[in-house]
């Protein structure tokens, strides 16, 4: 039987589209997320907001904790490894994780190289600030892309900036003359065939989600209208007053992202949103990790 693992892994991302992937730290939270309509959960020891507060080195989660979450839910389970830490990725593959997020939220393990993701059978999702980063990650074997945003802040401004930048660059390449593609490939430091794909299809070759700072149904709708194919919500849910209600509202906002009347109803009485910190108040910009 011939099979293309990479294609199957891209296909799983296609099944997640139009959905919300939620950060959870316990089996109990995972069950709440699944019941609220999450299409997948991200299992991690500390949500990004707490990583920020705690400081220090943050690493891959305890496999036992991840297995507890795998047993608690029937939807796909994603876990994070540090940028460049292929041994952590090997461990996550060994416990049959559904997706690995090579993530700037954790402390980078390699300041030059990302993981060679073509060596793995399980799929990877990676963060990107712009099209060049996205295509470099895809070239390394990422089967799904998300904006980096600025995790753990509850401030959507960076996710918006990254998504707008990606879409603008896609439009630029889409309308470029064929002969200009070689130079664009050089400028973005990516192989020519990926640039050619974007030129012909006017989109990324893989599914593209929004992540980093999404905290409300309106944030989720904003990102979907800007071209995201789904949304990651990290600290925004379990750092808020009423996680169940907020999670369910964000799920519905992603499905009905153009229906302002419904979005108004969904935004009512959600309790306190995550307090958040503004971009200018942050000392550590996680988005700058890994270019």
């Amino acid at each position: 039987m011939s099979e293309n693992r990479y294609e199957l892994n891209e296909n799983l991302a296609q099944m997640l589209k139009g959905g919300v992937i939620m950060d959870v730290t316990t089996p109990e939270q995972a069950r709440i997320a699944e019941a609220a309509g999450a299409c997948a959960v991200m299992a991690l020891e500390r949500i990004p907001a707490d990583n920020r507060a705690a400081g220090g080195v943050s690493r891959m989660s305890d496999p036992k904790m991840i297995k507890g979450i795998q047993d608690a839910v029937s939807i796909p389970v994603i876990a994070k490894c540090r940028i460049g830490h292929f041994a952590e990725a090997q461990i996550l593959e060994a416990i049959e994780i559904d997706y690995i997020d090579e993530s700037e939220v954790l402390s980078p393990a390699d300041d030059k190289y990302h993981i060679d993701k073509t060596k793995f059978k399980v799929p990877f999702v990676c963060g990107a600030k712009d099209l060049g980063e996205a295509l470099r990650r895809i070239n390394e074997g990422a089967a799904m892309i998300r904006t980096k945003g600025e995790p753990g802040t509850g401030d959507v401004v960076q996710a918006v900036r990254h998504m707008r930048l990606m879409q603008a660059e896609i439009r630029r390449i889409g309308s470029a003359a064929e002969g200009e593609l070689f130079d664009i490939a050089k400028e973005l430091r990516v192989p020519y065939d990926l640039v050619q794909y974007v030129h012909e299809n006017k989109k990324l070759p893989v599914v593209n989600f929004a992540a980093g700072g999404v905290a409300t149904p309106a944030d989720a709708a904003l990102m979907m209208q800007l071209g995201a194919e789904g949304v990651f919500v990290g600290s925004g849910i379990f750092k808020s007053g009423n996680p169940e209600k907020r999670a369910a509202a964000i799920v519905k906002a992603v499905t009905n992202f153009t229906d302002a009347k419904l979005l108004a109803e969904l935004s009512e009485d959600l309790g306190e949103a995550m307090v958040g910190i503004n971009e200018q108040e942050i000392e550590l910009l996680m988005a700058q990790r890994g270019e």
């Binding site: 199957l8 296909n11 593959e93 049959e96 559904d98």
Partner: peptide, 13 residues
């Protein structure tokens, strides 16, 4: 449901 297991059980034929 999920009769072939997790993502590593996904296949083409």
């Amino acid at each position: 449901r999920n009769a072939y297991g997790r993502q590593l059980g996904s296949f083409y034929t």
